[in-house]
Design a protein around this nucleic acid. Structure first.
Lengths: 217, 217
DNA sequence: GTATAAATAAGGCAAATGCCGTATTTTGTA
DNA sequence: TACAAAATACGGCATTTGCCTTATTTATAC
């Protein structure tokens, strides 16, 4: 059974080159189609989803490869995605993996290596160019990078507002908070309005999340 | 210039087998010595530190491979370490990488692959068996696992419910979640009802908080 | 002492939420 | 194949929330 491969690559020359590489292995690989961007790929997948593996460029117009990977791994979780790109920075690597990519190759890989990688990903592996593998491990070694640390903005919350925020985070509603703080529920609502404005959020969830992220509570 | 390789392996048979595999490539690899545990390895390194790469077992008496890796990467940062073990659980993988290992192979790898890996690590790569690479990516995809947690109650949330919970945590409302998941807002509400029942909470705040605390999301 | 900010209180209104019900389709599995 | 679980979809209804406005009292600072 041949592995059905699609590509997403905006550059015509590169797309042709990739296709030629794939065609060197007619016994193992069946080239299905090539999309010119993420949006185009999703359209083609909706028409013909019988694809096993996608070779995905990152930088593409309209919809980039990371966003496309994100959506495809939701909509077509059985499809394996290999990023095939010139980018080798930790940021792009991490974003791609987060989005659901299971492999990450640099564009200068040999046809042989690309074919090997496609076979490997179908066996549940995670093919990576050596430099990418090294950077993945670097990310694992320093997980602090994985949690984007914030730049400690000053949201200028008042003491009372922080108190209210703490109650909020416990899941109390306005009335319960007003009882806990011995003030009117109207006051609590006003505090929360002010908190929302200062944190630039519009509901309890995100207010508490942001407050936790920024170590306000 | 031949790559100077040492091994740490308590099992005599396996150590012999590894040595044989290395000796299949006399042109590329020079076998320096074999240690029987981490402590022994450190002693030998102090006597003769002219080693490029170490093939390190994990489970060894006196001092295990992870602790040895940790110390060696401090004392001899130029030495590259490849874990060569039967363990393929995320825990051991993560610990090894944290300790400073730059490669991770399973013991059933072919001589060819081991030799390739040694060359690759000397070029700055990070050779991994496919299953290990996949698990590394899984770790990167879910960095919360990187912070070890304790007792995990089973709330028996379904995959879909967890998806909804994730969207909830981003501050999306029912309608936005329904659009993100391509289902009706009624369905989302029903999922959330079920989530509340299972987690024994009654609003979004506490549901998300509890889910985070219990590493569900 | 007098601005300024903070905390307090209140009301209206549209939208979102939480909870109850029912019911069909899909999926996994024994 | 048959059963159970999961996912889907819909409606009603009371409550809560988010946002607007206004207004008084209390601290703090200059």
């Amino acid at each position: 059974m041949k592995i059905k491969v699609a590509t997403a690559e905006d550059n015509n020359l590169l797309a042709g080159s990739i296709r030629e590489k794939l065609n060197l292995f007619p016994h193992d690989i069946e080239f299905k189609y090539r999309a010119v961007n993420g949006s185009d790929l999703l359209k083609k997948l909706n028409t013909d989803p019988s694809v096993d593996t996608i070779l995905m460029d990152i930088e593409m117009p309209v919809m980039d490869g990371i966003e496309a990977t994100h959506q495809i791994s939701q909509l077509f979780p059985q499809i394996k995605i290999i990023m095939l790109t010139v980018f080798d920075d930790e940021d792009k690597i991490f974003q791609s993996i987060q989005a659901g990519a299971m492999g990450y190759l640099l564009k200068d890989e040999t046809p042989d290596k690309i074919c090997e990688s496609i076979k490997e990903i179908m066996k549940g592996g995670a093919p990576m160019s050596p430099a990418i593998a090294a950077k993945s491990l670097a990310l694992l070694r320093n997980p602090t990078k994985l949690v984007p640390s914030e730049n400690e903005e000053d949201y200028a919350l008042t003491k009372r507002e922080i108190e209210v925020l703490n109650k909020l985070s416990l899941g109390l509603d306005y009335l319960e908070i007003s009882e806990a703080l011995f003030v009117s529920p109207f006051t609590v609502r006003k505090h929360i309005e002010n908190i929302y404005r200062k944190l630039q959020v519009h509901n309890k969830m995100t207010a508490v999340k942001k407050a936790i992220q920024h170590k306000i509570i």
